[in-house]
Design a protein around this nucleic acid. Structure first.
Lengths: 230, 230, 230, 230
DNA sequence: GATGAATGAGGATTCATTCAT
DNA sequence: TATGAATGAATCCTCATTCAT
């Protein structure tokens, strides 16, 4: 129940009449259900990005979704489950829209272009989906980054690690992990900055953020290239 | 009433003869009261750093302080006032303990040493006072960094700007501001990382953070030095 | 939501077939809810008339209604809203029960009979609904009669003015207003008196009040009749 | 202690060294105490007339008086006692300033002049001491005019009865009482009206109130005069 | 599945009053 | 006497969650 069994709730939003006639009936139900879920998640995104996770109330989400609290709880067992599912959905959406940027081909690019190719869509996506940013941090407490509501953090970090480990061929896994964490944290901080800043300053901040990350990572990359992995 | 000139109310870290003692006489009726204020602020620090600003309840703070809610409100008119005063106290404590690092002399140091001199105490202080970090961020919503409860952010950022503008003699004020914001945000993010990481990894992360900031700022500094301000 | 079309929610005094029944269908989901609203308003009437507006607590009202505070707030956003709705309900009830006294025909009656026709039902209604009297005054401070919680005062005064302006054809609007205010205030004071007095004295007080008002208004009326409006 | 025996707390603010040397010491104490009491009552008058009896908090009164709550409770055992004492003080003040109007000689005047002589000072006094009006009513609830905090009501009513019984020589005590109550209640209502009305309208309302009372009482008086007390 | 009613503990805050100094 | 600290129940109101229909 907590999972809100959305095993298929995302990519496979089938419109086809579903040839398997036998299974058709049960699915029907789920069709409405998925619409509801989408409704709720949309509302949640709005409310979370407006009030933050802690400040968001399930009643507010239900109201925003135009449904009753009871209905909301028919799809999600509690507030956290909404956050989790919203996080998943955003992740899926991210992959579906901009995520293609990360073709293996990109990993051959020079760092500067890689950053460009990764950061630009990610930033744009965050501006389009402000809830993404909210869910990337845990609620409030800094020392407690990894919250239980399986946040986006834990999903994205491995990706960063993956990319970086390609560039830092020489570094130990621990080093890669550390660098990835720091780079990712830095990116999030910079991202928040761009979100809090006047729109006309935004680009300058984005550029600055790219510069920052580039300067941080470039020497590490070079290091590896110079001294080819033994 | 909540003056709480608690420079010394808690740790009694000062060795100087306390010149304020003379002027403190007038309102010494509050001997008990100031102890209470210190108590409350201590409790608030604990609760804030445990539950975050939004999640902290005044009742919880009172409970933690071992007093009744009514008593708490004899000293602070509301939750925000507690946060403000706690922020101020932490700031005062910071200045009193590690803040001396920022002698004008330091501004002559090469960047690397400057960073060392600034970051080390700041990080240590944050580890000793985890509430500091909580109050450096506003509550929750990223796009809303500047909260009304005069946060530490607004107090510290100017200092960062001040230092950097010494090094970036050539940059325009807008640039300095941007760089300072990004550097500060980055620092906070990295700091949070060090707080969330296993103690034995801490130093590695700190080093990494210093490296990051150094690499970001070094070229800017050099730029200014090479091309002497026209 | 707190429509509480409780014309009939409590006394069910009407004999007419209730034409509203047809239109009421659309939102009949709240069958239980409207009962609750009536319950709450009943409880509020009791508590208000016992403790006064200021002294009445929403928790007390909820307790009196046999529900939890949360439930109360599902129907009313705050204490004032309860008072407003209760005032409205009482007004509706008044109109539905005794309010018919004010046929245009009555305005042709001699003053004495008019008073009889108006005051008797009004007094009886007040004795049956003591909360009415409480809501006719603002809370406490005399110099502040008009409170924001749209009190009955502001609803009834115009009616008094209306009736009187028929009788005082010659007087200026300002005069009519003044006379109406004073007469109404006097009535309320006398009414309170009848409420505070032993039951067996009641009638004597009521008679006295009628006499008072009659003597006050009669000369004004005569004045107008003698000297026909120029 | 509750009585705060301020028998002489108002008119007789003696500065003379008190010739009776023997009794001087104990009095000394009381001198300060009486000043305190006066202070508190002044503050109470302000707060009561601003917030009403129910809305007035003892803390607010203490603050307004510039003393601590503890001190307040050294002179009055509770809020009601303050109201009682304030009522008494106002009564004394009334008697000392305007109360002289009620010479036995006045009782020989024709009703109109009597009203003039009584109402004018009373109204003026009320405008100068708005707390008077607040304490003339009990707190809120109409049916509960006689509150325990021995209000001014119970003190003034007998006086009204006294005066009226002179004019209504024929009426039975019960009748006199009834007429007095109604007249007094009416007066209070009219008074409140003058307090709530724009200053420039005030006089018109006052005149109207006098007219009202005159018209009510005149026939009663005449009745008695015509038919001399058997 | 959907609704809206229901809950009751908990949130911030106030208040009359008492207590230690 | 005066102070201000202390109290704890009570204030209004919110919230995550559950239940009956």
């Amino acid at each position: 129940m907590p999972e809100a069994n959305s095993d298929d709730a995302e990519g496979t939003r089938r419109k086809v009449p579903d040839p398997a006639a036998a299974t058709a009936r049960p699915r029907r139900r789920q069709a409405r259900g998925e619409r509801r879920i989408a409704q709720i998640l949309d509302a949640a995104a709005t409310v979370f990005s407006t009030a933050g996770y802690t400040g968001a109330s399930t009643n507010a989400i239900a109201r925003e979704a135009g449904i009753s609290p009871g209905t909301l709880y028919q799809f999600f067992p509690n507030k956290e489950a909404i956050a989790v599912e919203l996080g998943d959905q955003l992740l899926r959406r991210w992959r579906a829209t901009y995520g293609r940027a990360l073709t293996p081909a990109h990993l051959e690019l020079p760092l500067e272009e890689l950053l460009e190719a990764v950061l630009d869509p990610l930033i744009r996506f965050n501006h389009e989906n402000p809830a993404f940013g909210v869910l990337m941090h845990g609620p409030d407490v800094p020392g407690k980054i990894a919250m239980d509501h399986a946040d986006l953090h834990s999903s994205l970090l491995p990706q960063v690690e993956g990319i970086l480990s390609g560039y830092l061929s020489e570094a130990s896994p621990a080093e890669v992990s550390r660098i990835a964490r720091l780079a990712f944290a830095t990116f999030k901080a910079g991202l928040d900055l761009t979100l809090s800043v006047e729109p006309d300053e935004r680009d300058a901040y984005i550029t600055e953020l790219k510069t920052l990350l580039f300067r941080y990572l470039q020497p590490l990359v070079e290091d590896c290239r110079t001294r080819p992995a033994s």
